[in-house]
Write a protein that binds this DNA or RNA. Structure first.
Length: 210
DNA sequence: GGCCCGATCGTCT
DNA sequence: GACGATCGGGCCA
């Protein structure tokens, strides 16, 4: 660790399991301001502050992959222990990363939709195919872009966020006045659950999508 | 096996 | 606002 890294959020201890075992809406809100860290192949790490999330609360939530109790090889991680990553592939070209919440057999999770780069910005740019001109807030804006910038793909599905090369650590705390909520994005098929205000984001952060 | 569609993104009008 | 890219998952036969 360099002297400059001492005390930096990406060097703090990962959030404990108990953080994720709480109600999913509580976890979603609490993740805002926390720091997602992915250690890369060469031992360096990329890190970013989470500024946008969405809660998915199956089996009742018709927008969740676990709606109506659906349980397949793809979403099996949602039924497991809290604090693990659920990573899936969609639209033939994008990955999305979630954190599993609550007790085993309760298939709920929080989708991480956007982050502000804190470390490894050059690596993120290279992965996104963006040059030095591109503003930093664009690097991890949107769930697909975030996964690409962080180098997260299905090989990280099931990763333990409390003790692996993919972790989430405490960061800054947003005050209530700095947080907004809204309906979730891209779930028009979810009937009565379309309008649930289960998307949370930091107001005035340009890295927020939508 | 076949068919439909997606927790997205960038581009074009 | 509309649309194409691109392919695995889910469901039915």
């Amino acid at each position: 660790m360099s002297a400059a890294d001492r005390g930096a959020p990406w060097t703090a201890c990962p959030l404990p399991r108990s953080f994720y075992e709480r109600p999913t809406l509580v976890v979603a809100r609490a993740l805002l301001g926390c720091v997602l860290v992915h250690e890369t192949e060469d031992g360096e790490s990329v890190a970013g502050m989470i500024v946008e999330v969405e809660a998915y609360r199956g089996p009742k939530d018709l927008a969740a992959h676990s709606a109506k109790g659906r349980r397949t090889a793809r979403n099996e991680v949602m039924y497991g222990e809290a604090g693990h990553a659920y990573v899936y592939f969609t639209y033939g070209m994008h990955h999305c990363v979630n954190v599993v919440t609550r007790a085993p057999e309760i298939p709920e999770a929080v989708l991480i939709r956007a982050a502000v780069p804190l470390r490894g910005e050059a690596r993120m740019r290279a992965r996104r195919g963006l040059d030095a001109e591109a503003p930093a807030f664009r690097l991890a804006r949107g769930p697909g872009n975030l996964c690409r910038a962080f180098g997260i793909d299905r090989s990280r599905n099931g990763a333990d966020l409390t003790s692996s090369t993919l972790t989430i650590r405490p960061g800054r705390r947003f005050r209530a006045a700095e947080v907004r909520s809204s309906p979730r994005i891209g779930i028009d098929y979810a009937g009565a659950y379309v309008a649930k205000p289960w998307r949370f984001f930091a107001a005035d952060e340009r890295a927020v999508s939508g």
